[in-house]
Each structure stands twice: as C-alpha cells, then as structure tokens.
C-alpha cells in the first residue's frame, strides 16, 4: 500500500512562490499525471515528493509514513528523469543493478531483477553496452528499467518522453502504460503534453501558477473543466468562449441568440468545444475566416459576434472565406464560466 498524501505543501524560492498550499491525495496504484505549462510548479512538486527539493511548509506522506524529512533513498521511491540520467561510466546491466547493489542484495537476486526488468523493457540484448552506445529511446528504456528494478512503492517520472521524437514517444507511451499497470506501483508523472496526460492518467491534476486548478479523471477534465484556465488549456483546439448577457430566468444572450443557461447574477461566459457544434438552422451566426482541412475533419475558424470561434466540421463540406454559417451548440455540452472568479457555474 503506497498512498501518497501531499498536505498543505508550499514552496518559495526567495520572494518567488512556486507552490501555494498544495493538497493532493494519490491512491495506491493510481497513475497521477501533473499537467501544466512550464513554470507552473509541477516539477517542483514532483521533486518535493522525491526529496530532491524541500518544501517550505507542509507534509508529504507515502504509505502512511511521513517522509518529508527523509533523504530520497529512504522514501521508497524511484525516479525517471527527463534527460534519462543513465550513468555513463557503467554498463546497462550495472545501471539497472545500481540501486540493487546499493541495497546490498545478493548477486543472484541482482542478476534476476536486472534481467527481468531488461526483458520487460526489451533491452536484454543491450546489457553489456555503455550509455554512449545507446540511442535516446534505448537510454529512456534503461532509465525506466533502473527505476522498476528497485520495485519501489512509488515511481516518479519527470517528462520522461519529452526528449524522444514523435513516433518513439507514441510507442513508449503505450509501453509505459502497460508496464506500470503491471508493476502495481503508484505513479506520479509530470508532463506538459495534454495528449500524453489524457492517454496515461487515471487522474490528471492540472496545475497553473503554483496551484492545482482541477484534479479529476481525464474525461471529466475534458468535459467539465472546473475553471476557464482548464477549458482553455485542455483540448486542441481549446474550448470556445463567448460573452453572455443575462436576460433573467436562466436565459442568456449569446451572439444575438437566446440560450438556456444557469441562474446567476452578473455576466457569464458561454463555452463550447469546437467539436460540439453542428451546422443547423438556428444557432450562432458565424462568418468563415479560415478553413484548415485536417483530413478527418475541417477546422473552421469563424467570427461569431466579433469573437474568434473554432468549429470542427465534417471534411466533406466545401466552405469559402466569408461564407456565413449557423452553428448549433449541442445542448448537453454547453458550459458556463463566471468571468469574475473564472470558475465554472453549473
């Protein structure tokens, strides 16, 4: 059992606050992805859990044990670094066995575990090589195998795939998911790539400016963003926003159309994903500004009431610049945000 609890963790570097009062519980065997743009504090949070950084205030608990005062080696964690950090003076075998030798495991056990994890990561034929003789993808496999060989309670990964080329990243992503599910360890995975986050995570924590904005299942984050930031950050292209004026009784004026919405005092923002609009008879009037054929779909950028609005439409349509369309938002996919708090309004 290795549940991770992060309690009121804050981190300041001089006068700069990198993390504000983070509270997060990661269940045993859960795959948690910390997602955010660079500088949002996700790596700092990971390093605090690892023990490579000390929190200014707050506590970290792993498996019911408070660990924030312990050095990394006593926390029951293993880490995979962005630049792999494969020791260049050791062979692949010795790299994978490094932590096992530090634990002073018997030679036979070291050999067994190294060979097992190497086979798991498909690098059993590279055991005699040095890091300089490996490709980036192979180094990454060594780094993951080295972490897995420790049989840790928790595995921490800091953008492990971001230095790989696109095709390799896709392949490694699928493989990582399988291997980690098999190993039954709790995982924290830091990335700025939302597709990676979506495909790997049991749960995603979206971070922004040193805070966790939303922590939820990938689909929930996509469908029901808790804040405007999440709606604009997740999804490619991101959610569309349009200003909405109250007409009373849960009626809202959006781009000249009256739409049913929540009862709320003050103005709101209407939000809808680009794929959740259809061409229809009544709805938002849009003027086509840009048409980008993406094969499966047509990405159409329009002008709706003076605001840029993206729609994903069927690629069989033939559209020209300046065409006027009527876009019907799908009722159950409409979302509303309060511009004052930037939070979602139900």
């Amino acid at each position: 059992m290795a549940e991770i609890q992060i309690k009121n963790v804050a981190k300041a570097f001089g006068s700069y606050t990198a993390l504000h009062d983070i509270n997060l519980t990661i269940a045993d065997q859960e795959f948690m992805v910390l997602l955010g743009a660079s500088g949002c504090g996700k790596t700092t949070l990971l390093r605090i859990v690892a023990g490579l950084e000390t929190a200014t205030t707050g506590e970290v608990w792993i498996g019911g044990r408070r660990v924030d005062h312990l050095p990394p080696k006593d926390r029951g964690i293993a880490m995979v670094f962005q630049n792999y950090a494969v020791f260049p003076h050791l062979t692949v075998f010795e790299n994978i066995g490094f932590g096992l030798r530090m634990k002073k495991l018997p030679e036979a056990e070291v050999k067994r575990r190294v060979e097992r994890t190497a086979t798991l990561m498909h690098i059993e034929q590279l055991l005699g090589r040095y890091s300089g003789e490996l490709s980036g993808g192979q180094r990454q496999r060594v780094a993951v195998a080295r972490a897995l060989a420790m049989e840790p309670d928790v595995i921490l990964m800091d953008e492990p795939l971001s230095n790989l080329d696109a095709l390799l990243r896709l392949e490694m992503r699928a493989e990582l998911k399988g291997v980690l599910a098999e190993s039954k360890t709790t995982a924290i995975y830091v990335t700025h790539d939302q597709v990676e986050a979506m495909s790997l995570a049991d749960r995603i924590s979206v971070m922004h400016q040193g805070r966790i904005v939303q922590a939820d299942k990938p689909v929930a984050i996509y469908r029901n963003p808790a804040a405007e930031f999440v709606a604009g950050f997740i999804g490619n292209p991101p959610m569309n926003f349009l200003p909405a004026d109250p007409r009373g009784d849960g009626k809202w004026m959006v781009a000249g159309q009256v739409i049913d919405g929540p009862t709320h005092s003050g103005a709101l923002k209407f939000a809808i994903r680009p794929e959740d609009v259809k061409l229809g008879d009544h709805g938002l009037p849009a003027t086509v500004r840009l048409v980008e054929p993406l094969g499966a779909h047509l990405l159409v950028t329009c002008d709706v009431g003076g605001t840029l609005f993206r729609a994903v439409l069927d690629s069989d349509l033939s559209l020209k610049l300046g065409d006027t369309l009527t876009l019907t938002p799908q009722g159950d996919r409409q979302r509303w945000f309060d511009p004052a708090t930037t939070l979602a309004v139900a």
Partner: peptide, 26 residues
C-alpha cells in the same frame, strides 16, 4: 549533470556515496 547525482540519491546513495560512485569515476 546534477541529474546523475540526483538519480544516485534516489537509488539509495547518500551525498557522499553518490559522489564516490558516480561523480568521482567520471
């Protein structure tokens, strides 16, 4: 790279053993 030392720390090294086992040979 500092990551080499950090990797050693997470793999069971103290600051000193990380230095003697990783940094010094390099």
């Amino acid at each position: 790279p500092i990551e080499l030392e950090e990797a050693a720390w997470t793999l069971g090294c103290t600051r000193l053993t990380a230095f003697t086992k990783v940094v010094l040979p390099l």
